[in-house]
């Protein structure tokens, strides 16, 4: 690497090339000058086929496409929301092969043959899923952006309790977990709601849970 390379900063790194004031902060020129050969290459595509809301879907995707972006951009199923794209908010929660997950942190190509259920697959305005109806009744939302993720999560949570999967809030590891508020709150904690509808969401889920008992 010669001097010229040192000056050509890869990506959005920075180099101090002068001083505005005597007190210029001396930031180190930590440069990786490998101008990504990979990035210059053509995008790499791969085929994947899975079921979404009961429909077989076959896609030819850039391998980088997350399940979330495949749903939102390629299939135009925008009910699944992108809140953070880093697994920190839960807005993208969908149910894959019976389990809820963050669609933002999994690649679409990793789901060959999977069965995916999104909010659109749970119910429609004319035929609401009981959880959707309960969220409306208890005002378990405000802006609505975290709502599809909350509802998908809630549906899966009731299944997890039924299946005997313990949680951090379970008093005992060996007993069947109970359908109680503290259990539901803990299990729903991967779904942030900045509008703060938590208290109402718990009421909605509890009502559905009790109706199913």
């Amino acid at each position: 690497m010669d001097d010229c390379d040192l000056m050509s900063i890869s990506r959005r790194k920075f180099l101090i090339v002068g001083a505005v004031t005597a007190a210029t902060v001396a930031l180190p020129p930590f440069i990786s000058a490998r101008a990504s050969a990979a990035n210059a290459a053509r995008p790499i595509k791969a085929k994947v086929a899975f079921q979404v809301n009961g429909q077989p879907r076959a896609l030819d995707l850039d391998t980088r496409t997350t399940l979330l972006d495949a749903l939102r951009e390629n299939l135009q199923l925008t009910g699944t929301k992108k809140g953070c794209d880093h697994g920190q908010c839960g807005a993208c929660t969908v149910i894959v092969d019976g389990r809820r997950l963050n669609a933002c942190l999994t690649l679409a190509v990793m789901h060959e043959g999977s069965t995916v259920t999104t909010i659109e697959g749970l119910g429609t305005p004319d035929k609401l899923h009981p959880m959707q109806a309960a969220f409306i009744k208890h005002d378990g939302y405000q802006c609505g952006y975290c709502t599809p993720g909350q509802i998908c999560s809630a549906v899966a949570v009731l299944g997890e309790i039924r299946d005997g999967i313990p949680s951090h809030a379970s008093p005992s590891l060996t007993d069947q977990p109970q359908l109680i508020t503290s259990e539901i709150q803990e299990r729903m904690s991967g779904n942030l709601c900045r509008c703060g509808a938590y208290s109402n969401i718990i009421e909605a889920i509890t009502e559905v849970a009790e109706a199913n008992v």
């Binding site: 890869s10 180099l15 090339v17 930031l27 990035n39």
Partner: peptide
């Protein structure tokens, strides 16, 4: 890949 060089000020 956007390469930016900055001059930082206090």
């Amino acid at each position: 890949l956007v390469n930016v060089s900055y001059v930082s000020a206090e």
